[in-house]
Simulated scan of single mutants.
Amino acid sequence: MRGTAGAAAGTDGNSEDFQAFVVGRWSRLMRTSYLLTGEQYAAEDLVQACLERTFVAWRKVSLAQDPDAYVRRIMVNAHARRHRMGIKEYLSLSGDPDHEHDLPVLGDSMAQAVERADLLAALAQLPLRQRQAVVLRYWEDLSETQAAAAMGCSVGTVKSNAARGITRLRSAIGLTRAGTDTSLPLHEGLRS
């Protein structure tokens, strides 16, 4: 962290705790952010903004019963604000092999998923709330209650948005196998 925020951390004595938190969560935050935004640079910006807000509130975050839930809520809110302001950058896949490197991959088997590109493109086309519900429920593997807390809505809203999102993903071109093969849940494409 640069500037006054970095100086403040040194005086708090909490900078090491915050740094350990960031190092331990970085990959997961990046993948979740990528699934929310659909674009590498937008994902990096979202994680940076999320971590800046987390750092400012680190005392409160570190004392929270579930710091990960607190940070997820910051990320979802920041993404929603950017989306409302018109800063939408969707993944545009044209079969270009350069897009294989858009997702931050560190030994992640997700990169080997045959339908990865189709799934990510379809995910990027979902409306904001459906995308949030699908990512939080099936990527983050949150309960409906936890996803509702992260999204700031009711459990029913999470259920309906997740169901609509999954239905749209299953009907998307290139995902028909996952949509018709009931032995393979669609969310496995997000994990594999």
Rank of each mutant, 00 (worst) to 15 (best):
M1V: 11
R2D: 02
G3Q: 11
G6A: 15
A7T: 11
A8L: 10
A9R: 14
G10F: 15
N14M: 06
S15I: 08
S15L: 10
E16S: 09
V22P: 00
V23D: 14
G24Q: 07
W26I: 04
W26D: 11
R28A: 09
L29V: 00
L29M: 12
M30R: 09
S33Q: 03
L35W: 06
L35Y: 12
L36Y: 01
G38K: 00
G38F: 01
G38C: 03
Y41W: 13
A42L: 03
A42Y: 02
A43P: 12
A43F: 05
A43S: 14
E44M: 08
E44F: 09
L46E: 00
Q48H: 09
Q48F: 07
C50A: 10
L51K: 01
L51S: 01
L51H: 03
E52Y: 10
E52M: 07
T54I: 03
W58D: 00
R59I: 06
K60P: 01
V61L: 13
S62Q: 13
S62N: 13
L63F: 04
Q65E: 13
P67H: 12
Y70G: 01
I74V: 14
N77A: 15
A78F: 01
H79D: 13
H79G: 00
H83M: 10
R84Q: 13
R84M: 07
G86T: 06
I87N: 10
I87H: 09
Y90N: 08
Y90T: 10
S92G: 06
L93S: 06
S94C: 06
G95H: 07
P97H: 08
P97E: 15
H99D: 11
H101L: 12
L103R: 14
L103N: 04
P104Y: 05
D108N: 15
M110G: 07
L119A: 01
L119Y: 02
A121E: 15
A122I: 07
A122P: 00
A124C: 05
Q125R: 15
Q125D: 05
Q125F: 09
L126F: 07
L126G: 11
P127K: 02
L128H: 12
R129L: 11
Q130L: 06
R131H: 05
R131P: 07
Y138D: 10
Y138G: 10
L142Y: 13
E144M: 07
T145L: 03
T145K: 12
Q146E: 14
A149Y: 11
A149E: 11
A150G: 04
M151T: 03
M151Y: 02
M151I: 00
C153N: 06
K159G: 01
S160L: 09
A163C: 05
R164G: 10
I166T: 08
T167L: 11
A172F: 02
A172H: 01
L175N: 03
T176L: 10
T176A: 11
R177K: 07
A178N: 07
P185W: 08
P185A: 09
H187I: 02
H187C: 09
E188F: 04
L190V: 02
